[in-house]
């Protein structure tokens, strides 16, 4: 099934931390220095994990082509939600301003267009891989890390 691919990042990350969990617990617990062999074990695990992390990253790069369909579908759903959500908020604001000020349909019409504009802007930003809404800035963090942390990419 193609949907498995989409989750690959998440599972990979989970597994990475699954490995890391043992290490940190051990790190705090060996302070008494009861079993020096654990330190060796620790170093070994760390080396193996670094290696695994590297190969996983390479695999992720290779994976990119295959899971395109599933990723594309989920991305399309995301874009649709962004567009509609902003429009809903815009029309909602307009509707309640009209009810409050008794100004006929005018606020609703104005805010319909503002909502549509902000919906399109959200989609534009999401499509460019910018951070979710507000401000014309790319997401923080280095480029390599972004693919793992950014939901826009799924």
């Amino acid at each position: 099934m193609t949907c498995g691919k989409r989750l690959f990042n998440v599972r990979g990350e989970f597994q990475r931390f699954y490995g890391a969990a043992g290490r940190s617990a051990r790190g705090t617990m060996t302070e008494g220095g009861k079993k020096p062999s654990l330190d060796e074990l620790d170093a070994k695990i760390r080396a193996a994990k670094d290696h695994a992390g590297l190969s996983q990253r390479q695999k992720l790069g290779k994976d990119r082509g295959n899971g395109d369909q599933a990723r594309g579908l989920s991305f399309a759903i995301r874009l649709g939600t962004e567009l509609v959500a902003a429009l809903m908020i815009g029309v909602g604001i307009g509707y309640f301003l009209d009810r409050w000020l008794e100004t006929g349909p005018w606020f609703m019409i104005a805010f319909f267009f503002l909502g549509a504009a902000s919906g399109i802007m959200n989609v534009y930003r999401a499509a460019l891989g910018y951070d979710s809404a507000v401000g014309y800035h790319p997401a923080d963090g280095e480029e390599g890390d972004k693919d793992e942390s950014d939901p826009n990419r799924r």
Partner: peptide, 30 residues
């Protein structure tokens, strides 16, 4: 938003506010 001409700001600010308010909506709908 940075880099927007001054005459656009009265239009851009409400758009940005709506965009900000739409966050919980799209988050919960998803």
């Amino acid at each position: 938003p940075s880099g927007v001409p001054a005459f656009m700001i009265p239009i851009m600010v409400p758009i940005e506010i709506i965009s900000y308010l739409s966050r919980p909506v799209s988050m919960s709908i998803r």
